[in-house]
């Protein structure tokens, strides 16, 4: 069946649905849509508390310089030699990748070689080799576009220089989050977000909302980490940007 026929068939069936009885539905409660008015420090505290409950870890850096040092120290102590990373221009702290390079840590921004979906076998093979080549890199480094204090959630907008694979492929994910990007709730972030309808298509094809490390509970409801994505999530909150 052609999609047009299916469309018309489904819409015709829906048109035959008897009108529902008029019901006085309650409005969205204030408790859901409320926008708390909080000081920045209180927001940070609430965010890291919620993040910790979601099994994420965190550090607070008082300045971008300290954030670079904090990151470098963490990677060096972990013996990390390579990181998958967003492009330098997309990170909220300048000079991060250069600092890592000085320490001998290579930053790779993944760009799988596939320009379209024609999927010739030779194209797929090149892509496969590339992905398997970067699969073992242990750490992913990203920024974040927002965080929600109520739930400890990070919002990562993707696009050029901001690959999805950085926060999916490695076993550990480190996020540089500017303190002024923390919103009280997801509602507050959505209210200030430019309407998607007004955005050019190429600017925001996808956004990831991360709340803690990759978690699943498929065997005896016991929580396990890292099956589908990074099993560890560490957030460096950068103040004074």
């Amino acid at each position: 069946m052609k999609s047009l026929e299916g469309r018309e068939a489904i819409l015709a069936r829906l048109a035959a649905v008897p009108a529902a009885a008029p019901t006085a539905w309650p409005a969205r409660p204030e408790a859901v849509a409320a926008v708390p008015d909080e000081e920045p420090d209180a927001l940070i505290e609430r965010f890291v508390h919620a993040l910790a409950r979601a099994q994420g870890t965190w550090q607070i850096a008082a300045s971008p310089v300290i954030a670079r040092l904090t990151l470098a120290t963490r990677l060096q102590e972990g013996g990390v030699k390579q990181v998958l990373s967003w492009a330098a221009s997309e990170l909220p702290v300048d000079g991060v990748l250069e600092a890592l390079e000085v320490l001998g840590i290579e930053a790779i921004t993944p760009a799988p070689p596939l320009s379209d979906t024609r999927l010739r076998p030779q194209d797929l093979e090149v892509r496969r080799r590339y992905l398997l080549g970067i699969e073992g890199i242990p750490v992913g480094l990203t920024g974040a576009d927002a965080a929600f204090a109520a739930t400890g959630t990070l919002a990562l907008r993707h696009g050029p220089g901001r690959p999805l694979l950085v926060n999916q492929l490695p076993r550990r994910h480190i996020v540089l989050l500017a303190a002024d990007q923390i919103y009280p709730t997801m509602e507050c972030w959505l209210a200030q977000r430019p309407a998607a309808a007004s955005q050019p298509h190429s600017t925001a094809p996808s956004t990831t909302l991360l709340t803690g490390p990759s978690r699943s509970a498929d065997i005896e409801v016991a929580p396990v980490f890292g099956v589908h994505g990074p099993g560890k999530l560490h957030v460096i909150v950068v103040q004074g940007r």
Binding site: A50, R53, A54, T109, P110, A111, P112, L114, S115, D116, T117, F148, A150, T151, G152, T153, H158, G159, P160, P163, L164, L165, A196, H201, S202, A204, P205, S206, T207, T208, L209, L210, T211, G212, P213, S214, R215, A217, V221, H228, G229
Partner: peptide
């Protein structure tokens, strides 16, 4: 499961643009 949010949500607003490294084309 008693979590404040799903651990991972992807908001897809279209196929990935040609200059993006990944995501569905």
């Amino acid at each position: 499961g008693g979590q404040s949010m799903p651990d991972h949500v992807l908001l897809l607003e279209g196929p990935a643009p040609a200059d993006a490294a990944d995501g569905p084309r």
